[in-house]
Structure formats: C-alpha cells, structure tokens
C-alpha cells in the first residue's frame, strides 16, 4: 500500500503542473482505446511465499499479459486484462519438510488470470501532444486459475511407508482482486512505454491436486487433496502500449 500512496502523491503533485510545455488534461485520452503488452517480475507474499509448515514455498517468478482499455470520459475507463504468471518453488524448503531421498519438481506454480479493469487516468500533455505522461491506476476484479508444480518424490522404505509419491495438478479456479498503478510515456499519441506496479489483494483460494503413492509392496494409493491458502503477490511490469483513436 505504501507504494500506492507514493504514486498517489506523485499524481497529485503533477496534477498541479501548469505551464506552456506541461499541462494536465483529464480528457486527453477520452474516447480512445489503448492496447498494451506487458511483462515483468512477480513476487509472492505472505503464506504463498512462506516456508513455514503451512507455507507454500513460492519464489519470485515472472508475468506476461495483454490488456485493452477504453477511456470513456474524464480519464475514466474500463477494459480487460489477460495474462499468466509463473512462480518458482523453493525446492530446498519443500525438501526440508517432505524429506525424500530424491525429488524431481517440474515447473512451478502457474497462474492464468482474466480480469475486468476499472481505470483512472491523469494525462499530462507535454510538448504539444508529441509527448504525454499518463499516470494511471486500475482496480481489477476477475477470475484466475492456479496450478501446482508436478512433484515426484522417492523414499527409502524404512523412512516412509510410501516409497514413491507423485503430486499432479488439478484444475482450480477462483476470483481475485488486483490493484495496479503506474505511468505511461506516450509518444505522438500513438504508442508508448508502460511502467507499473500491481498487487493481487489478499484472497483465499483452493488448489486441487492428485497424489499417487506406492508402498514397498507395490500397492497403489490414490488421493485427491488440495491447498487452501492465500496466493497473494505483487509484481512490477514494463510494457508497450499502443493508442487507438487519440488525436
């Protein structure tokens, strides 16, 4: 939240700018669209990244997404946000708890999301429309699916009843709420660069997975289980934005 407050302060400060070469124009992007492609680093937080016994051992990953918004009036707009996130798994932490003889983790936590943006823009037009700094903030409710990594463990038969344990992901979808803020550096009202910060608000989600295990006598045990925790994260994005219908 601290970063959001700072962004807000910067926004208010800049909104007071009045000069020949820089002018706040709330309506500059009105009735225009923008389409952006972004990517960046994503950082899990709270229980998602915790390595405590109830933690999920997620580590930093990356994010990629596309977004389209339409600015209706007074810099306010709506849009869609679609993307994916990948988080690595702290294999050492997992190993410390699972204590297997061998471990093979394929992939990490992967997430796909689809959200509906509510966007507020504060365009600062500089240099007679050749260059605009657009400060923006967005709230995005939506749905997302997260999958666990595929994990294969083997144990010595005297250490564990199950000598082979395999975790595989099952489909899991639930809602989320994200907030995002940042700035766009727009050139000639055609294209530009986006720098932003996004936070997925604290929300609980259930992640299903299946488990197959064999004991020393080759008897197969199958189980359906789940994680139920907070998959919060924050991320930093850089992207390209293309403006449509802005004069």
């Amino acid at each position: 939240m601290k970063r959001l407050y700072i962004s807000l302060l910067v926004l208010i400060s800049l909104s007071s700018l009045k000069s020949a070469w820089a002018q706040v124009d709330f309506e500059h992007l009105d009735r225009g669209g923008n389409f952006s492609i972004y990517g960046g680093m994503t950082i899990p937080s709270s229980e998602f990244s915790s390595t405590s016994s109830s933690g999920l051992f997620a580590q930093n990953g990356f994010q990629f997404g596309i977004e389209g918004n339409y600015i209706i009036k007074y810099g306010l707009g709506i849009g869609l946000d679609l993307g994916g996130e990948w988080f690595k798994v702290d294999e050492q932490a997992f190993m410390d708890y699972a204590n297997p003889e061998t471990m093979d983790i394929k992939g990490g936590y992967s997430s796909t999301y689809f959200g509906l943006n509510i966007v507020a823009n504060l365009p600062i037009v500089i240099d007679d429309n050749h260059f605009t700094i657009n400060l923006f903030a967005a709230g995005t409710p939506g749905i997302r699916g997260i999958r666990i990594p595929s994990i294969d463990l083997t144990y010595n038969e005297i250490d564990n009843r199950y000598i082979e344990v395999s975790y595989r992901p099952r489909a899991s979808v639930s809602g989320y709420l994200a907030v995002r803020g940042g700035m766009q550096l727009l050139f000639n009202n055609k294209f530009g660069l986006t720098l932003s910060y996004k936070r997925v608000m604290r929300s609980q989600q259930k992640l299903n997975y299946s488990v197959r295990s064999f004991d020393a006598e080759g008897v197969l045990y199958e189980d359906e289980n789940y994680l139920n925790s907070y998959f919060n994260s924050e991320s930093y994005q850089i992207g390209l934005v293309f403006l449509l219908g802005v004069d």
Binding site: S54, Y97, I143, N160, Y162, G175, L177, Q204, D223
Partner: peptide, 30 residues
C-alpha cells in the same frame, strides 16, 4: 460484466476456510 466480476472477487474474499498447506505423505512404516 464488471459488476459480475466485482461480486465474484468479493465472494472470493469472503469464502474463508481453514488454511491448508502442503500435505506430505509421510508415515512411519510399520
């Protein structure tokens, strides 16, 4: 759609259940 999404997200916030982390299939062999 936006309102539907908002309601969905709010529901997600409200549906709090007991937390459950990883289950490790560890059991002392007999």
């Amino acid at each position: 759609l936006l309102f539907a999404g908002l309601i969905m997200a709010l529901l997600a916030q409200c549906m709090e259940e007991e937390e459950l982390g990883w289950t490790f299939y560890l059991e002392s062999p007999p």
